[in-house]
Amino acid sequence: MTMPEPTVQPTRYVVSCLPDDNINALHFSLTVEYRGRSLWAVVRHGSCLNSAGQWSYESIPSEREDEWLAEHRFDLETALKLAKEAAPRVTVNGYTVMDALRMADA
Results as ranks from 00 to 15, higher is better:
residue 82 L to E: 01
residue 44 R to E: 11
residue 51 S to Q: 00
residue 39 L to P: 01
residue 41 A to C: 05
residue 93 N to F: 07
residue 90 V to K: 04
residue 51 S to I: 00
residue 35 R to C: 10
residue 89 R to V: 08
residue 50 N to K: 05
residue 78 T to H: 10
residue 39 L to D: 01
residue 81 K to R: 15
residue 86 A to W: 04
residue 41 A to P: 02
residue 87 A to Q: 04
residue 29 S to Q: 03
residue 71 E to P: 07
residue 15 V to G: 00
residue 10 P to E: 02
residue 6 P to F: 15
residue 70 A to C: 06
residue 29 S to T: 03
residue 54 Q to N: 15
residue 17 C to T: 02
residue 98 M to K: 12
residue 97 V to E: 14
residue 92 V to C: 15
residue 90 V to E: 05
residue 74 F to W: 03
residue 98 M to G: 12
residue 73 R to A: 06
residue 96 T to Q: 07
residue 35 R to E: 08
residue 95 Y to P: 07
residue 25 A to N: 07
residue 33 E to C: 04
residue 36 G to S: 03
residue 68 W to K: 06
residue 48 C to E: 15
residue 93 N to V: 06
residue 48 C to L: 11
residue 47 S to Y: 11
residue 93 N to Q: 02
residue 77 E to N: 06
residue 33 E to V: 10
residue 98 M to R: 15
residue 33 E to D: 09
residue 16 S to R: 06
residue 42 V to T: 09
residue 22 N to E: 06
residue 84 K to G: 15
residue 8 V to P: 02
residue 53 G to C: 07
residue 16 S to P: 05
residue 62 S to C: 12
residue 15 V to W: 06
residue 34 Y to G: 03
residue 3 M to H: 10
residue 105 D to H: 13
residue 104 A to F: 11
residue 2 T to R: 13
residue 99 D to P: 12
